[in-house]
């Protein structure tokens, strides 16, 4: 028998045989176990309610309450373990994709970087075919370079081809996968010479990082995978194009949007001289979102709005912050559809 001591003096007893079993379990098995735990958790809740109803054995109810608390603790830990178990090194994907270039029999070298970078297996799977397609179309290149790195808790995929320069349309499958996964993509191509593509994706589907912002008196979380950067800009520095204000970001001119009206939030004139902007988007599309306050970025555990609430345009779900406050998670794809009617 082995005893694992947990926080707040609570203990959970696990025997060695179970630990061995846990080591041999696949992520799916673990997920199933989490499901079982959740069912048990719900059952205990029902017993507590029954007890409360009868108004007998309050102590039993209180004890069950404590057990339920502990169980949720265990479930959370287990969920975290499953998340970690789902992370796979990018090695396999990179080598298989590089193999596509090799199969053509051409004398091109594929340089790989970031074989140890761990990314959600499901995301790697989605990425494989579009990336292999990209490599296949550039098998006439002198040299190819592929890298997958973890940058600020995002998976950044870079592909570089030397001696070839295809138009961006040749990368359509990659653009589609970036959109599907809620990420960003950027292209750079010099016809006939060289080209590069950069994808920014979440590291996992189950958990992500978000940028906390405030609109009027409400908190919102913007998924980091859809953010290119943030800036604090003085009002006078904003340009304009017709009715629309614009913002110069590198060599691009982006439309500036105040999302308040879309989200039915009052937009109160600020006395501040500058406005915080979040350069955001989906796939290739970009826009600058004007917010009232820019806070920090943090890990987000998303809770869907659920059937009770149903669909709310622009909102992907909610998350609880450390202080017990609720922040709504912005659906970047919805927002892009709302603010950018046509593809840019």
């Amino acid at each position: 028998m082995k005893e694992v001591v947990r926080e707040k003096g609570k203990t959970v007893v696990v025997d060695d045989a179970r630990i061995d079993r846990a080591e041999a379990l696949s992520p799916d098995d673990l997920m199933e176990l989490v499901g079982e735990l959740m069912v048990g958790h719900a059952r205990i809740h029902r017993v507590i309610l029954e007890q409360k109803k009868r108004m007998t054995a309050e102590e039993t109810a209180a004890e069950l309450d404590r057990i339920a608390d502990h169980l949720s603790c265990v479930v959370n830990d287990l969920q975290e373990c499953v998340l970690k178990a789902k992370m796979l090194p990018a090695r396999g994907l990179l080598r298989r994709v590089a193999g596509v270039a090799g199969k053509r029999g051409d004398e091109i070298g594929v340089e790989l970087e970031g074989e140890d970078t761990e990314v959600d297996g499901d995301i790697l799977k989605e990425l494989e075919a579009p990336l292999a397609d990209w490599v296949r179309k550039r098998s006439a290149a002198k040299q190819l370079k592929l890298s997958i790195t973890n940058e600020d808790n995002l998976a950044v995929v870079r592909a570089f081809a030397d001696g070839i320069g295809l138009p961006a349309e040749a990368s359509e499958p990659l653009r589609a996968v970036a959109e599907r996964l809620g990420g960003l993509i950027g292209f750079e191509s010099h016809a006939g010479e060289r080209e590069s593509v950069r994808l920014q994706l979440p590291l996992t589907n189950a958990m992500f990082f978000g940028q906390l912002v405030k609109l009027h008196d409400q908190l919102f979380m913007l998924p980091m995978s859809g953010i290119e950067g943030v800036a604090e800009v003085r009002h006078g520095e904003l340009g304009s194009s017709g009715e629309r204000q614009t913002f110069r970001w590198g060599d691009r001119t982006l439309p500036v949007f105040w999302p308040h009206r879309l989200l039915r939030i009052p937009r109160v004139a600020s006395a501040k001289e500058s406005v915080p902007l979040v350069v955001a988007g989906i796939g290739e599309r970009r826009f600058a979102l004007a917010v009232d306050e820019l806070y920090w970025s943090q890990e987000v555990r998303m809770k869907s709005l659920g059937d009770c609430v149903g669909r709310a345009q622009g909102i992907a779900g909610s998350t609880m912050l450390a202080g017990g406050k609720v922040a709504l998670i912005i659906d970047m794809r919805d927002l892009a559809e709302l603010v950018l009617p046509e593809r840019t």
Binding site: R264, L305, V309, G310, A312, G314, I315, S318, G324, K325
Partner: peptide, 17 residues
């Protein structure tokens, strides 16, 4: 404190902890 959910149906008051 209730967190309003923009664009939700009229039957939704919001979210609480």
């Amino acid at each position: 404190e209730i967190t309003r959910v923009p664009n939700a149906g009229a039957h939704v008051e919001g979210l609480i902890v």
